[in-house]
Design a binder for these strands. Sequence first.
DNA 1: GAGTGGTCTAGACCACTAG
DNA 2: TAGTGGTCTAGACCACTCC
Lengths: 243, 243
Amino acid sequence: MTFMTSPSFRPLYKQIKELLLDGLRGGEWRPGDAIPSEIELAARYRVSQGTVRKAIDELAADNLLVRRQGKGTFVASHGEPQVRFRFLRLAPDAGGPVAAERKLLDFRRARASAETARLLELRTGDSMIVLTRLLLFSGDPVVLEEVWLPAGLFRGLTASAITEHKGALYNLFETQYGTRMVRAEEKLKARSADDETAKLLALEPGHALLEVERLSYTYGDRPVEWRRGLYKTDRHFYRSELG
Amino acid sequence: MTFMTSPSFRPLYKQIKELLLDGLRGGEWRPGDAIPSEIELAARYRVSQGTVRKAIDELAADNLLVRRQGKGTFVASHGEPQVRFRFLRLAPDAGGPVAAERKLLDFRRARASAETARLLELRTGDSMIVLTRLLLFSGDPVVLEEVWLPAGLFRGLTASAITEHKGALYNLFETQYGTRMVRAEEKLKARSADDETAKLLALEPGHALLEVERLSYTYGDRPVEWRRGLYKTDRHFYRSELG
DNA sequence: GAGTGGTCTAGACCACTAG
DNA sequence: TAGTGGTCTAGACCACTCC
């Protein structure tokens, strides 16, 4: 199976990668599952093991799969602790563990504004779920954030499901609603606290806060969540790496 | 050449990678140069082309090398326009090109504080170069930053060399002083403008600003620059990607 | 056409994990 | 010991660039 006749040439391993992505999107293998072995996949797709390998390499580089020598290749999951820190970029000035307490302040339904609809590729007025929550570190309120989700993707999501869930929101989403957040883009600005925010974050109005807007994507670059967070950066900072 | 006898097994391609890194560190190939072809390197190191290939793959993934099909493999350089946006994460709210004007406000020598010395792995009191500059976008001052450099690495650096140089500072550093910035870590906080900053950024004192501290590294994870920037985020935002 | 990186294959063998 | 991913090789051929 070695046909590549230009023009518009598409490498075999890229095609295999697409097939594997289809399996991930379609739920054939779910977060935490092992996918078939390289030899098995090579036989299934009638290509050499090396070609499957290269496809998997790229998916692993994209953080969609995790290879474990001797054990197999697994679908990446927000259940693994190290993954959480890829999405929560806040770290304490003084080292030490980050044990966050989450307090759900509000849970409601709303209609998508023109702007929200545009970002999430929905129609204006589409039904959405909005939740407001507070993150506290050792009792100190540090993050106030609002999360917007398309209601269609999270049918049956309730406030108590969130408060009772242990672990990250993204873990709940992937285990209960089959939506895995794969990557996100954030836009940061500095902003002064308004009265209500100041009260919730236990600081004076006008205090400088870090505003973080996040658009999260699932497989295939489909946007499925929008967040706006206000971070108190008195004893924490946002870490960014420039490669 | 296929000896790998555990324990403390180190793959051949990792060793080749180290050898290539030595060449980069030592200046055998300079930014913009082509390195020898894969076949040539395979012959030099007595390994197969595939092994060299894997070493180069990793260096390319680290943004140290750039592959160009049909032409060769080149040492990454800050001269290429697309690289600049890997380090300047500020983008305008309304799209459009980012043409920044740079104004050097101050150029002086100083001694490393204990904190600076710790970060840059120097000794307290070591000689340093400090420059303060303003970045303007379409005439509007947006970034005020202070850059700390070990004087030993940048002998002969003058204010006029900086003001006369076209292109990014990092481009000047790599072409004139042989120090290429490979990656950086940034810590972000929100902060209120003090009187002097407010004046320079044309805003009122107390205005919320984004504070960005950057530690930049050259080959081999050696820290060689520390920066502190204050960003006006009224019409610009800092972009971050969570993989 | 010559030279470069890019793809694909087939096979051998090593390192790691688990039963 | 069997099965998995990881390394390494040798060789064939393709795509791209430049002369």
